Simulated assay, not measured.
Amino acid sequence: MTLALNLRFDLARLSDTELAKRCDAIWADVEELERDGGPIRTSPRWRGPVRHPRAYLFWAMVRQSSASELEILLSAFAANTSLADVVSRMPRIRLHLALCEMQDILDEMKSRTPSPLRPAPSRPESI
Score class of each variant (00 low, 15 high):
residue 9 F to H: 14
residue 8 R to S: 08
residue 12 A to S: 12
residue 6 N to Q: 01
residue 106 L to E: 12
residue 113 T to M: 14
residue 47 R to S: 10
residue 60 A to D: 10
residue 68 S to D: 11
residue 8 R to E: 12
residue 11 L to V: 01
residue 58 F to T: 06
residue 57 L to V: 08
residue 1 M to L: 12
residue 97 L to N: 08
residue 21 K to I: 08
residue 86 V to I: 15
residue 40 I to N: 01
residue 41 R to P: 05
residue 123 R to E: 05
residue 65 S to P: 08
residue 95 L to G: 04
residue 87 V to S: 05
residue 31 E to S: 10
residue 51 R to H: 00
residue 28 A to F: 05
residue 2 T to F: 00
residue 111 S to H: 10
residue 70 L to S: 12
residue 6 N to F: 00
residue 122 S to N: 08
residue 72 I to C: 10
residue 36 D to Y: 04
residue 93 I to T: 14
residue 123 R to Q: 10
residue 104 D to T: 03
residue 108 E to L: 04
residue 26 I to T: 00
residue 120 A to I: 12
residue 67 A to F: 07
residue 83 L to V: 12
residue 41 R to D: 14
residue 69 E to W: 02
residue 18 E to S: 09
residue 14 L to V: 04
residue 77 F to M: 14
residue 51 R to G: 00
residue 13 R to S: 15
residue 99 L to F: 06
residue 42 T to L: 15
residue 52 H to C: 01
residue 118 R to E: 10
residue 113 T to K: 11
residue 75 S to C: 09
residue 54 R to N: 11
residue 60 A to L: 03
residue 54 R to D: 13
residue 124 P to R: 04
residue 49 P to W: 00
residue 94 R to D: 12
residue 30 V to R: 07
residue 118 R to M: 10
residue 23 C to P: 03
residue 39 P to V: 14
residue 108 E to F: 00
residue 57 L to N: 11
residue 11 L to K: 00
residue 28 A to H: 03
residue 68 S to Y: 04
residue 26 I to F: 04
residue 102 M to R: 11
residue 54 R to K: 13
residue 123 R to I: 02
residue 90 M to S: 07
residue 27 W to K: 11
residue 20 A to P: 08
residue 116 P to L: 15
residue 39 P to R: 14
residue 71 E to I: 06
residue 33 L to N: 04
residue 79 A to K: 13
residue 71 E to D: 15
residue 59 W to G: 05
residue 77 F to P: 02
residue 81 T to Y: 06
residue 127 I to H: 03
residue 57 L to T: 11
residue 73 L to D: 06
residue 25 A to H: 03
residue 61 M to V: 10
residue 45 R to I: 15
residue 125 E to A: 11
residue 122 S to M: 10
residue 25 A to E: 10
residue 125 E to M: 03
residue 90 M to C: 14
residue 102 M to F: 08
residue 40 I to L: 15
residue 55 A to N: 07
residue 37 G to I: 02
residue 86 V to P: 04
residue 23 C to Q: 13
residue 60 A to Y: 08
residue 51 R to P: 00
residue 61 M to T: 12
residue 12 A to Q: 13
residue 115 S to C: 13
residue 88 S to C: 10
residue 71 E to R: 11
residue 110 K to Y: 08
residue 103 Q to G: 11
residue 83 L to T: 09
residue 98 A to C: 13
residue 11 L to N: 02
residue 108 E to Q: 08
residue 127 I to V: 10
residue 104 D to S: 13
residue 95 L to V: 05
residue 68 S to V: 13
residue 47 R to H: 01
residue 8 R to C: 04
residue 24 D to V: 09
residue 78 A to Y: 05
residue 25 A to P: 06
residue 92 R to F: 02
residue 34 E to R: 13
residue 67 A to D: 09
residue 46 W to Y: 09
residue 122 S to T: 12
residue 46 W to F: 11
residue 23 C to T: 13
residue 114 P to G: 07
residue 38 G to V: 02
residue 96 H to L: 10
residue 96 H to M: 07
residue 68 S to H: 09
residue 69 E to P: 01
residue 28 A to I: 08
residue 45 R to N: 07
residue 88 S to W: 02
residue 121 P to C: 04
residue 36 D to S: 12
residue 42 T to C: 09
residue 56 Y to R: 12
